[in-house]
């Protein structure tokens, strides 16, 4: 029973990984790519690790996969935040369809 549910979680996770990578190729600029890729790939990999925990049970591998999942949930948004700020400071422009960029306006106001 646990085995089947775990396999379903692994399948869902792999599907979301694929969607995230398609987003990485299709979307037009850095920030949108970062959104799609970070959300979908992080949650997809967490789903795979949770499926691993369900299949393996309370063994060494299961406990470690829970630990890895927790670390990934903490670390991945932080990395996305750092990349977004670095890209904006390095002067990467938003794409053509963008509506507003209040960050750049505020920075120019200060300077």
């Amino acid at each position: 029973m646990n085995n089947t549910i775990g396999l379903i979680f692994v399948g869902i996770g792999i599907a979301f990984n694929l969607f995230g990578c398609i987003g990485l190729v299709r979307l037009p600029d850095v920030y949108n790519r970062l959104q799609a890729a970070t959300k979908c790939v992080t949650l997809g990999t967490c789903s795979i690790l949770f499926g691993t925990f369900l299949v393996m049970g309370f063994t060494a591998a299961g406990i470690k996969s829970i630990l890895c999942m927790w670390f990934l949930l903490l670390a991945s948004p932080t990395a996305a935040h750092a990349i977004a700020r670095g890209a904006h400071r390095a002067g990467v422009k938003l794409c053509q369809e963008s509506v507003a960029d209040q960050y750049a306006e505020d920075k120019e106001g200060e300077a």
């Binding site: 990984n17 995230g20 990578c21 970070t38 790939v41 990999t45 990934l72």
Partner: peptide, 8 residues
């Protein structure tokens, strides 16, 4: 993203 995929 490549690093996270390798974890999976």
């Amino acid at each position: 993203i490549f690093g996270i995929l390798i974890i999976g």
